[in-house]
């Protein structure tokens, strides 16, 4: 029914008058844009750019003379090396951080206010079990059961990858691809209000995300269909890449999801839930995660 409201608004728009006006950004200044998603036990890259007020687009020199980053892990400064990416920014590389490390960044450049941010690398994803069944008309139900810590507020994510071998001579192994959830209301007997996953493409990942209070029984459910007709498939497996997200990463992904999911967001007719940034005096994101992969699970063959 989303499209019906769009039809209604489009009808009103069609009978209306459109005009442009100059934006007044009321004293917006240049900012440091920090973009970094730090993975536990993984090398760290931080992108630092000069961000201009959008009303200056095309008018101002975007060149960033220099940038300096101070990175601290648990209060101690760590070494970084920088590489110029393009005229607007730099990449800073650092070492590997562990679960539980508290990482702070101070980023500065000439003529721009210093930006700061903090993130704590989440602990490992808790013990889990994954189960996959066919429920109806080709819809799969993937259930992830995990041991959540009731004492802490935790944020989770999962990317479900599919591996398919097609019937051919010889067999064709398709590249891994992410699965997509079923559309709103597509499930026949599913409660469309209960199953409303936050699923988004973010930074190259197809992610479902949730926080522990969303789920009261320490399980997470995903419903999806496969793309190919069954007679083409010889073998199909899926694997879960499970994430424990820092709060900053969860809220950053959620903000982008809110923007894409609501048709009213860009029209100024809904709440500003998509404006999250954890960079103080700057823009962008500085966040972290830990990840673990499940084993490959064979897809149920009942309808092949």
């Amino acid at each position: 029914m989303h499209k019906y409201l769009i039809i209604l608004i489009s009808f009103l728009a069609a009978t209306s008058c459109r005009y442009s006006f100059e934006l007044d950004t009321y004293g917006l200044e240049q900012r440091i844009a920090v973009r970094s998603v730090i993975g536990a036990e993984d090398s760290t890259s931080i992108l630092v750019h000069k961000a201009l007020p959008i009303t200056e687009i095309g008018n101002e020199d975007t060149y960033m003379d220099n940038a300096a980053v101070i990175l601290k892990c648990n209060g101690k400064e760590v070494e970084t090396s920088s590489v110029r990416l393009d005229k607007t920014g730099f990449r800073f590389d650092a070492g590997v951080f562990k679960h539980g490390d508290r990482i702070e960044i101070i980023a500065g450049a000439d003529g721009i206010e210093t930006a700061t941010a903090v993130t704590t690398i989440p602990e490992k994803f808790p013990d889990f079990e994954v189960d996959l069944k066919v429920v109806e008309n080709g819809i799969r139900h993937l259930n992830i059961a995990y041991e959540d810590n009731p004492e802490t507020e935790d944020y989770y994510g999962v990317s479900v990858l599919r591996q398919v071998v097609l019937n051919a001579t010889p067999d064709v192994l398709l590249p891994e691809s992410p699965i997509w959830p079923i559309s709103y209301g597509e499930g026949l007997t599913l409660d469309p209000n209960a199953y409303s996953p936050v699923f988004t493409l973010w930074n190259g990942l197809s992610l479902f995300i949730w926080k522990d209070c969303d789920e009261t029984d320490n399980t997470y459910d995903i419903y999806f269909r496969h793309d190919y007709e069954n007679y083409q498939i010889k073998e199909r497996q899926i694997k879960c890449r499970l994430f424990k997200l820092s709060e900053e990463l969860y809220r950053t992904i959620l903000a982008e999801y809110d923007l894409s999911d609501s048709p009213f967001a860009s029209l100024g007719l809904s709440s500003p839930s998509f404006t999250y940034t954890n960079i103080k005096n700057g823009v962008g994101w500085f966040c972290s995660y830990s990840t673990i992969d499940s084993e490959w699970i064979s897809d149920p063959q009942e309808d092949l």
């Binding site: 005009y19 442009s20 687009i57």
Partner: peptide
């Protein structure tokens, strides 16, 4: 390139 505001009046 420039960034502008657009409005619909009804």
């Amino acid at each position: 390139l420039s960034y502008i505001g657009e409005a619909f009046g009804i």
